[in-house]
């Protein structure tokens, strides 16, 4: 009944290979656990509760381009060569961002949150995981245009000190400016974006007055503590790299760092829904993941 011509044969590895496959996978898992433990004990950066798929991808990438055979070899290098650790640390921290990333988010801040912040005589804002600073300056521009910047203090933190240096410099590649200008306009910008930067060769430097109310500081969400009395906390696309357990710790940290009625802004694909602390927040702009701490903690 079956016509042989209708078959396609597939060349598939057989069961002895499956045993090898499992053996190798098991070793990789042990080696990755040990590597993260070594990093923690030696340098006190804790990646143990990060999403494993992400960590594995970044670590294996470094292993390949460093011509290493396996993660045990990498662990040795990590322990005895600080500069190699620093290279891997850069791989493990994601510093990809842009000015006015997700313009609709900034538009929502402008329309829905700014009117509420205007009630305060002084505003404290914490940008956690600010990377190279593009989004911090975006917020500074927005606050300036809304007439709030002079009474705002922005704390911009990251665990990656190299990214923080870049953020402090406020110098960015010129080839991104076209995208940033378009984002700025979609975000409800009221001026010409060119007013905020000076071009030099292949870079732009942002207007230095944007820096006036920003303090850049080294802070690790995994191991460091509360950063107090904030009216607004931004932490966008950081929680996606954490396990649920670590997400919970960080959301508690945010809750304790917010004033009653303070705002918490997460990334487009992040949510409080699965957190133990969800009950202490109400959703203000659902689509943009803007939440507000309920004034009464017995909620």
């Amino acid at each position: 009944m079956i016509n042989k011509k209708e078959f396609v044969s597939i060349d598939i590895p057989d069961f002895e290979d499956d045993f090898q496959f499992g053996w190798k996978k098991e070793n990789e898992k042990i080696e990755l656990d040990l590597l993260l433990e070594a990093i923690y004990q030696k340098y006190h950066y804790d990646f143990k509760d990060y999403s494993r798929a992400h960590i594995k991808r970044r670590v294996l990438y470094r292993m390949r381009i460093s011509n290493m055979e396996n993660l045990s070899q990498m662990q040795h290098q990590i322990l005895y060569d600080r500069s190699f650790f620093e290279t891997l640390l850069m791989d493990l921290s994601i510093n990809v961002t842009e000015m006015f990333r997700d313009p609709s988010f900034y538009l929502a801040i402008r329309k829905k949150i700014i009117p509420q912040l205007k009630k305060y005589s002084f505003i404290k804002l914490w940008h956690a995981g600010c990377a190279s600073g593009e989004e911090v300056y975006s917020m500074a521009i927005l606050l300036k245009e809304e007439g709030l910047y002079s009474r705002t203090q922005i704390y911009a933190t990251d665990f990656n000190t190299i990214a923080l240096q870049k953020a402090r410099s406020a110098i960015y590649p010129i080839d991104m400016i076209k995208d940033y200008t378009s984002n700025y306009q979609k975000a409800g910008g009221i001026n010409s974006f060119a007013e905020y930067y000076t071009a030099k060769y292949d870079s732009v430097i942002l207007d230095s007055t944007l820096k006036e109310r920003i303090v850049f500081a080294d802070h690790n969400l995994v191991t460091d503590g509360v950063f107090g009395e904030m009216n607004l906390i931004l932490c966008r696309n950081v929680l996606i790299y954490f396990t649920r357990k670590l997400q919970n710790r960080v959301i508690k940290l945010f809750m304790e760092s917010l004033t009653p009625s303070g705002f918490l802004c997460l990334g487009t694909k992040e949510t409080l829904q699965f957190s133990e602390y969800a009950q202490f927040f109400s959703s203000i702009v659902e689509k943009e993941k803007i939440f507000q701490r309920k004034p009464d903690d017995n909620a």
């Binding site: 898992k29 999403s51 494993r52 798929a53 992400h54 970044r58 994601i94 990809v96 961002t97 696309n237 996606i240 790299y241 990334g267 694909k269």
Partner: peptide, 11 residues
């Protein structure tokens, strides 16, 4: 992930 849940990244 190994436990068949999704992770997202902005790298």
């Amino acid at each position: 992930e190994e436990d068949e849940t999704f992770s997202l990244s902005v790298e």
